[in-house]
C-alpha cells in the first residue's frame, strides 16, 4: 500500500491538475454508483469507471450511504470519493457490520485508490482499463482473531476492464465490467485477512448492465471470494440491481443480494439500498 500511495502521489505531481474545476461533463450513468468499498463501481465490486462524472478536464466528488441487510447480518457503509481528471480516484468508506444474533458490531475503514490506465468506457477503440487497491483496517478485530484470521488489516489489489455499447442489445445501451482481484481477505476484510491459507489468490469479479431508459439501469454482479479459513466456509457473492439516475447529481440503487455462507450462517440473502450524491 505505501508503494501504491507513492505512485499515486507521483501521478498527482506529473499531471497538470491546476486549471480543472469541479464539474460533471460525462454522460449520465457513466460514473456508475458507489461500491461497498467506497470505490466507484457497482455495489459489491468496484468497476473500471471512476466516481462522479468528471472528465479529463474536471474534478469530481461523490458521497454515499449504503445498507445491506441479509438474514443474520447487516452492513452499513458511508463514504466518499474524489476523482481527479477522470484519471485518479481516492475513496474512503466506514463500515459497520452488525451480527443480529447478539447485536455486536465490527467497525472497519476502507481506503481505496484507483488509477485509470487507458481507454474509455464509451468512446474510442480501447475499453476503460483501471488498476486499484483497497486497504482494510479493522477497528474491532476480536471476531477476526476468534475465527483464526492471520491479520487484522490487509490490502486487496485489482485490475479492471469496462466497456459500454451505446447501441447494445435490443438497441439499448449496455456495459460489461470484469475485474481480477488479488486478495486474501476474509469476508471483505471484516473477518481480517488470511488464516489457515496465507497466500493471496486471484479472484474473478464481473458485472453486466443494460439501460432500459436513459435514467434506469438493470444489471447483475458476481464476486468470487477467497476461502482462507478452514473452520468457516466462504462463498462467492452475487446481486441483481436496479439503478436510477434522475439527474447528474443523485442516484438510488436497489439490489437483491446473495452472499452465501457468512461466518457459519448459511445462505445469507437480502436487500441492498444505496444513495449517492455527486458534484
Amino acid at each position: 500500500m505505501p508503494r501504491i500511495l507513492a505512485s499515486a502521489l507521483l501521478v498527482l505531481f506529473l499531471l497538470p491538475w491546476g486549471q480543472a474545476a469541479f464539474a460533471q461533463g460525462r454522460l449520465t450513468g457513466t460514473g456508475g454508483v458507489s461500491s461497498i468499498s467506497g470505490a466507484g463501481g457497482g455495489g459489491l465490486i468496484p468497476w473500471a469507471t471512476l466516481s462522479s462524472l468528471a472528465t479529463q478536464d474536471q474534478f469530481g466528488a461523490v458521497a454515499f450511504v449504503t445498507r445491506t441487510d441479509v438474514d443474520d447480518f447487516q452492513l452499513d457503509v458511508a463514504g466518499a470519493a474524489v476523482t481527479l481528471r477522470n484519471r485518479l480516484e481516492l475513496s474512503l468508506a466506514k463500515r459497520e457490520f452488525t451480527i443480529k444474533a447478539n447485536d455486536s458490531r465490527i467497525r472497519q475503514n476502507v481506503a481505496g485508490l484507483k488509477l485509470k490506465v487507458a481507454g474509455d468506457l464509451v468512446y474510442g477503440g480501447i475499453p476503460q482499463i483501471a488498476i486499484g487497491a483497497e486497504h482494510h483496517h479493522l477497528h474491532d478485530p476480536a471476531t477476526a482473531q476468534a475465527v483464526g484470521a492471520a491479520r487484522n488489516d490487509g490490502t486487496d489489489y485489482y485490475a479492471s476492464v469496462a466497456r459500454a455499447w451505446i447501441d447494445g442489445p435490443l438497441h439499448r445501451t449496455g456495459m460489461i465490467n470484469i475485474n481480477l482481484r488479488y486478495s486474501r481477505a476474509n469476508q471483505y476484510g471484516i473477518l481480517g485477512h488470511g488464516g489457515d491459507d496465507q497466500d493471496r489468490t486471484l479472484q474473478l469479479e464481473a458485472a453486466a448492465a443494460v439501460f432500459l431508459s436513459r435514467r434506469l439501469a438493470i444489471g447483475a454482479e458476481y464476486r468470487q471470494k477467497p476461502d482462507n479459513l478452514l473452520a468457516l466456509k466462504e462463498d462467492s457473492a452475487s446481486d441483481i440491481f436496479l439503478a436510477w439516475f434522475p439527474n447528474k447529481h443523485f442516484s438510488v440503487t436497489g439490489a437483491w443480494v446473495r452472499l452465501g455462507d457468512i461466518a457459519g450462517a448459511s445462505d445469507q440473502n437480502g436487500f441492498y439500498l444505496s444513495f449517492q450524491g455527486a458534484f
Binding site: G25, R26, T55, D57, R172, T173
Partner: peptide
Amino acid sequence: VTEGDFNAIVEDLIAAMNKAGVTLAAQNR
C-alpha cells in the same frame, strides 16, 4: 472542443430527439 463540451452536445441532441419523438432504439443507433 473538450470532452465535456462534446458530451453537452450529445445531451442537446438527445433532448432534441426526445422532443421529436424519436424512439430510444433509433436514438442509440
